[in-house]
Simulated scan of single mutants.
Amino acid sequence: MSKRLASKHKIDRRMGQNIWGRPKSPVNRREYGPGQHGQRRKGKISDFGTQLRAKQKLKGYYGNITEKQFVKIYKEAIRLKGDSAENLIGLLERRLDAVVYRAKFVPTVFAARQFVNHGHVKVNGRRVNIPSYRVRPGDVIEVKEASKQLEIVVVASQLAERDVPDYIDVDHGKMTATYTRVPTLSDVPYPVQMEPNLVVEFYSR
């Protein structure tokens, strides 16, 4: 199991925000950073620090994906036509693990990566076990028949803490989801403000 799977609370504490909107986040109880110096008054953050924090927050939100993967997505975003920040969000939201999380087939994006890795998900009828697989509009994502009654799936579909966004059409009775379109930043239901424009500035220095 990757160490990153157990790091979601550390990311929240480091950012000082409940970036997934989870009720059990330690930030709900204490908004200061971790460690013995966490409660010290924070100094003014530089432009570089602000950009770095925006990058770490966005990268962490999608399951704390590796820097190498994130840079690859950024480079593709700036090659595409249109606004690079919007392109970056669109590419991140096309990841299969992100779609599985958005469809409420699992409770967290970390669980989504593991769920896909273990072969519980099909795309257009074919099993896909690559979390970074890029979904296209019109693709049908479904939970494998033998996995539909897993407790994690049943519980996740009933979670009241988040809704399925309108660019994914979900049938929880059949455990299928259709990816209808690539979203813009304003379409994505982030619990906290994400600033992909600062991420683009960070990498374009």
Rank of each mutant, 00 (worst) to 15 (best):
E142H: 04
P189S: 12
N129L: 13
H118C: 09
K144P: 01
E145Y: 08
R126P: 03
T178L: 13
Y167L: 02
Q193D: 11
P165H: 05
L185W: 08
R181F: 06
L150S: 13
R126G: 04
I130L: 15
V154C: 05
Y179I: 02
H172L: 13
Q193P: 09
P196M: 03
E145G: 08
A160E: 11
K174Q: 14
D163R: 09
D163N: 11
R126T: 10
Q193C: 09
V123F: 13
V143N: 00
I141P: 00
P183L: 04
R136T: 13
S132L: 06
H172Y: 08
P131N: 05
P189C: 10
V155F: 12
I141N: 02
K122N: 11
H120D: 09
A146K: 12
P196D: 04
Y190P: 01
A160C: 06
P131K: 07
A177Y: 05
A146V: 15
V116A: 01
A156F: 02
Y167V: 01
Q193G: 10
S157G: 12
D163M: 07
K144M: 10
E145Q: 11
E151P: 08
M175V: 03
R134F: 09
Q158Y: 07
T178S: 05
D139G: 03
H172C: 05
V121Q: 00
E145I: 05
H118M: 08
V123P: 06
S147C: 12
K122F: 11
A177F: 04
I141W: 01
E151Q: 12
E195T: 15
I152G: 12
T176I: 15
I130Y: 06
R136F: 00
L150Y: 09
H172P: 08
V170N: 07
V170C: 07
A156K: 01
V154T: 15
T180Y: 04
Q149L: 15
K174T: 10
M194A: 14
Q158D: 11
H120K: 14
L150F: 13
E142N: 12
V182D: 01
G138C: 14
K174G: 09
G138E: 01
E145W: 02
V188I: 03
Y190C: 01
N124T: 03
K122E: 15
S132M: 05
T184Q: 10
P165I: 07
T180W: 07
V192I: 12
D169M: 09
S157Y: 03
V140M: 13
R162K: 13
S157M: 02
A156Y: 02
R136V: 03
D139P: 02
G119K: 04
P137C: 14
K174I: 00
T176H: 01
D171P: 07
Q158L: 14
R136K: 15
P131A: 06
